[in-house]
Simulated assay, not measured.
Amino acid sequence: MSPVARRGLFVLAGAGALAAGLGWRAWRSTAPSGGEAAGSGDPLEDFWALELPTPSGAGMPLRSLRGRPLVVNFWATWCPPCVKEMPELDRFAREFGGQGWQVLGVAIDQAAPVQAFLKQTPVGFPVVLAGNEGLSWVRRLGNPAGGLPFSVQFGADGLAARRKLGATNFDELAGWARPG
């Protein structure tokens, strides 16, 4: 084999190895990570086992919210219907908190835009950050399309009682909270 042909073969082999490595890296970056892959296999139990960071960086174990009715709202600062419903969720949290209801905002976003949003539109309920990984939780909790906003109402028993894809409002949330 001539030196030119040998060099071409080495270049081709190197390009193939590089392509394989890049393909593996791309596959790993889309594969579930951390809390997604590990766990019991039960989406609800795995959800309650999560500890997610708040915009300030502190960790919040979701199990600390179990035991009382809870509305979990998946949202993002770049989602206009999500932004529009935040005051409605805040009003619900204020008016029904005395009856044991809780609200948790799960931002499919990064800390900086969430901090800026909350500075402009403060809410009285906790907000945690899930980043893009939060979309896998949206899907695991009953929204296969992964659309936002998405709300899940949990009973005091930790089981999902209702799911809502799309913006919600105070009257709808109040209806969820009223007995009967």
Rank of each mutant, 00 (worst) to 15 (best):
A156F: 00
A37C: 03
G142R: 04
G41K: 11
M60Y: 13
G59T: 14
R139T: 13
G34V: 11
A19G: 11
L148A: 05
F154P: 02
L12H: 03
D42Q: 09
E133P: 05
G16M: 06
S136K: 11
K119R: 14
D42N: 15
E172W: 14
R63L: 10
A111F: 01
A107D: 08
G21V: 09
F150W: 09
P69G: 05
V138D: 02
Q120K: 13
E88M: 10
Q115I: 10
A15Y: 07
G158K: 03
F170Q: 06
G147Y: 12
G59E: 12
D157V: 04
G14M: 04
L129S: 03
M1V: 11
G8A: 13
K119N: 09
P122V: 08
G105F: 10
L65N: 07
L129Q: 00
F170L: 13
A130K: 02
L18E: 07
G39T: 03
G67H: 01
W101P: 05
A17G: 08
D109P: 05
G146F: 07
P179F: 03
C82H: 04
E45V: 09
D46E: 11
S29V: 07
T121Y: 07
G134I: 00
Q99P: 02
R7Q: 09
G147T: 13
G35F: 12
P149C: 07
C79Q: 07
W176V: 13
D171M: 12
R68E: 15
G180A: 14
W101K: 03
Q115L: 13
P149L: 10
A145L: 13
L12T: 14
R140T: 11
G175S: 12
A161Q: 12
R66D: 00
P69H: 06
A37L: 13
M1A: 11
K84T: 10
G147C: 01
F74C: 06
G23E: 01
A174S: 14
W24F: 14
A116R: 15
W48K: 06
S33N: 06
A49Q: 01
L22Q: 10
L18D: 05
Q115Y: 00
A167K: 02
R178P: 02
L62D: 11
P3I: 04
V71K: 12
G131Q: 03
V138I: 14
L70E: 04
S33A: 15
V106L: 15
R94D: 15
W176Y: 12
L165N: 05
P32T: 08
G124R: 09
G21M: 07
Q102P: 08
S56Q: 15
G142I: 12
A174T: 02
G175E: 13
A145M: 07
A76L: 07
G59M: 13
R162M: 08
F170G: 08
G35S: 12
R6D: 11
D171C: 05
E51W: 05
K119W: 01
G16R: 01
L118Y: 09
A20H: 00
F47T: 00
A145W: 02
D171E: 15
L129D: 00
F150A: 08
W48T: 04
L44T: 00
W101S: 02
F96D: 02
A13I: 15
G134A: 04
P69I: 13
N132C: 00
K119A: 15
G131E: 01
P113Q: 10
M60G: 01
M86K: 04
P81G: 09
V83P: 02
